[in-house]
Design a protein around this nucleic acid. Structure first.
Length: 284
DNA sequence: CCCTGAACCTGACCGC
DNA sequence: TGCGGTCAGGTTCAGG
């Protein structure tokens, strides 16, 4: 379900309900996620208050006095706010019970997501964690972000990073070490918007075209956040509303259909184990 | 270091 | 109705 716009939509949905609230208990019904939920997680947060709800890449970060709860939604995860007394359904793995009778509930059928704890170092805001440390720059400058370091994201950056790379440009921009938050949907969309064929060798693309691509990535992600994300199956934001960006998809999920720009049949190929759709006419 | 493919897991859908 | 195969929004890891 979640790419960056969906994670950001989730963050915005839950933030006002969590900030300043105290955790009264933690219910872990299933701890076998991508990594085991730490046994001592409850001891870190119960009786503590949520300072802020932030984000780095697709990681949601609940800030507490002594550290962060790091939440990743994987492929099928979601977070909802509901009454703490609501009976859990299948795949409702974790409840963060709040002092106002509500609970933040983590659901994840495939269990590719993660809920972990990271200590704060001596009051430092900097996050020192191997999951976070090697991440590339954020494509969007937004409030609520946790920046470990400042790195500009633009065409010049992509151009410099891509020199010598033989991998397809789509694989390149989906690499979190290069830039975060560009998943399969928006990689396809951004490349269409920039007129670049996804199979093109990353190291062979010009600076001018990378400038267009960086702009396209920023544009498509911004637009998707405005629309509340993309609802493909059952994604809903923290407020229960679906995302409306699906209506604006130009290529993702449209292989074999006609290009909305030139009317020719869209090609579908497999790149890095991911379905890739493009227009052979509009994208070179 | 670079690149590719397997792996993690469940559910939905499609053809037979 | 059932069975097997395929696919799904992400990321890490092993191996060449």
């Amino acid at each position: 379900m979640p790419e960056l716009p969906e994670v950001e939509t989730t963050r915005r949905g839950i933030e006002p309900h969590l900030t300043g609230r105290q955790i009264t208990s933690l219910r872990v019904r299933e701890s076998r996620l991508r990594w085991p939920v730490p046994d001592d997680l409850a001891s870190r947060i119960v009786t503590e208050r949520v300072i802020a709800v932030r984000r780095r890449a697709k990681y949601l970060l609940l800030s507490f006095p002594r550290g962060w709860v790091l939440i990743h939604l994987g492929m099928s995860g979601s977070l909802r706010l509901l009454d703490a007394s609501t009976a859990p359904a299948k795949h409702d793995h974790i409840d963060f019970v709040l002092d106002d009778g509500k609970a933040l509930r983590y659901t994840d059928p495939r269990r590719f997501g993660a809920v972990l704890w990271m200590d704060k170092l001596e009051g430092e805001l900097e996050i020192q964690d191997k999951l976070i440390a090697g991440l590339g720059p954020e494509p969007l400058i937004l409030p609520g972000l946790e920046y470990p370091r400042v790195q500009p994201f633009d065409g010049a950056y992509l151009y410099a990073r891509s020199r010598g790379k033989k991998a397809p440009v789509k694989t390149f921009i989906m690499d979190n070490h290069v830039v975060v938050g560009v998943g399969n949907i928006y990689a396809n969309e951004a490349l269409f918007m920039a007129g670049i064929r996804p199979t093109r060798e990353a190291g062979a693309i010009s600076l001018v075209r990378y400038k267009r691509l960086a702009e396209a990535i920023i544009e498509v992600l911004s637009r998707a956040i405005e629309q509340g994300g993309t609802t493909l199956r059952d994604f809903v934001g923290g407020d229960g509303k679906p995302g409306y960006f699906k209506q604006e998809l130009q290529v993702y999920g449209r292989g074999g259909l006609n290009c909305r720009r030139c009317e020719r049949v869209l090609k579908e190929v497999r790149l890095g184990q991911r379905t890739t759709v493009y227009c052979a006419c509009c994208q070179r």
